[in-house]
Design a protein around this nucleic acid. Structure first.
Lengths: 204, 204
DNA sequence: GCGAGGCGTTAATGAGCGCTAACGTGTTAA
DNA sequence: TTAACACGTTAGCGCTCATTAACGCCTCGC
């Protein structure tokens, strides 16, 4: 229900904030369940209590709505990643903070996780490039951190490992999140940590 | 390019095999790139060199095509999982074989991985239930194996861990698979192994 | 030789969709 | 008071799409 206040808070008069965010939140849920093409403008309007074309008072079009959503997600993740990367010197501390951040996001906003990688292809070229750039930059934070921990790791391997960690941490939409939030978070954190630090050549 | 011969080889006269499989293979690629609703029957026909409604000679409809594809994937995975589970007594051996099997599939057929979890929602209720059941059964193989290795693991945790491992191993479509097939496979295998066996309470 | 059926074609139908147009209403500011 | 504007409404346009209809080959078994 409650989205992070940062995400999707674009420019605009103060009075429109609420409705815009309501639409974005509901759109994320519907897109996550039925896919971008599986949700019509009419569905979207009905879900927020208005009907159909009223959405054009808030967004120039359906694709623009998706664009704002996905760009908001990527910017949020990148900002969080940069913040964590700058907050500590020890790369192992940074990695732990990055994992915490990602698992927290994945548990709090599973719909956004789903939409982000499923409907990226439905974006017009310009915003798609923007999202891809933001995502790449975010991944690079993880890659750099991994290679500071283990300098023998090639960039290729580090990138594959980072994507693997995202897949692991972003598996929350698949497992239903029945257990207690904190327990699931701890479990996923330990798994990701083991997966990423198990990369170092074994001592034994 | 080359799909596992088992997948999608349904019943039918020998002469139709080739075309049906060609359609299924091409459909997987297009669905993976553009999503089920983003690919029209005309696109699909064009991609195999025929035009439009010719597909109705081989499938009763677009959704039926998707159904056959997804059911084929789930059956293939389940069969492979059952085979590995029966091939060894030591649960650690079984787990290693399961990981091998999954990573091999994920590297060989990344499009199927993508379509399976993205377009499950576009299936009619009946085949969707079937796919879900097959998937659940496959997951249970992993859950059982994990709990045989570590009896203190609760079913809930084991299920979350299994889904996490799938997310990790199925991350291949995101990382582009540039490196050598064998190296990537080894890396993902080590990560999954570390993530899943790191669940045991540490000895130290 | 010939009927049956596998496999393809083009044309048409009907539904759903994104989006625009035209219009109504309440609040706000000069 | 009234003009501007934010925010809704319903109709309708134009397009795409899945599906069906009607028809034409080519290749068999007889």
């Amino acid at each position: 229900m409650a989205a992070s206040p940062e995400i999707g808070a674009g420019a605009g008069p103060a009075g429109t904030r609420s409705r815009r965010e309501q639409i974005l939140t509901v759109a994320a849920q519907l897109f996550a369940r039925h896919g971008f093409h599986g949700v019509s403008i009419a569905d979207l309007g009905a879900a927020v209590g208005v009907s159909g074309p009223a959405l054009y008072r808030h967004f120039p079009g359906k694709e623009a709505l998706l664009a704002e959503m996905l760009i908001g997600i990527s910017e949020h993740l990148l900002a969080g990643g940069q913040e964590r990367a700058a907050a500590a010197d020890d790369p192992r501390e940074v990695l732990a903070a990055l994992i915490d951040f990602q698992v927290d996001f994945a548990l709090r906003e599973p719909e956004l996780i789903v939409v982000q990688d499923r409907d990226l292809a439905n974006l017009p070229p310009a915003p798609r490039r923007r999202v891809r750039l933001l995502q790449r930059t975010y991944v690079e934070i993880w890659v750099d951190t991994l290679r500071r921990i283990n300098p023998e790791l090639t960039p290729e391997s580090a990138r594959i490992a980072a994507h693997g960690a995202f897949g692991l941490l972003n598996s929350t939409p698949h497992s239903g999140t029945r257990g207690s939030r904190a327990e699931v978070a701890a479990l996923l954190h330990r798994m990701a940590w083991a997966a990423l630090t198990g990369l170092a050549p074994r001592a034994g």
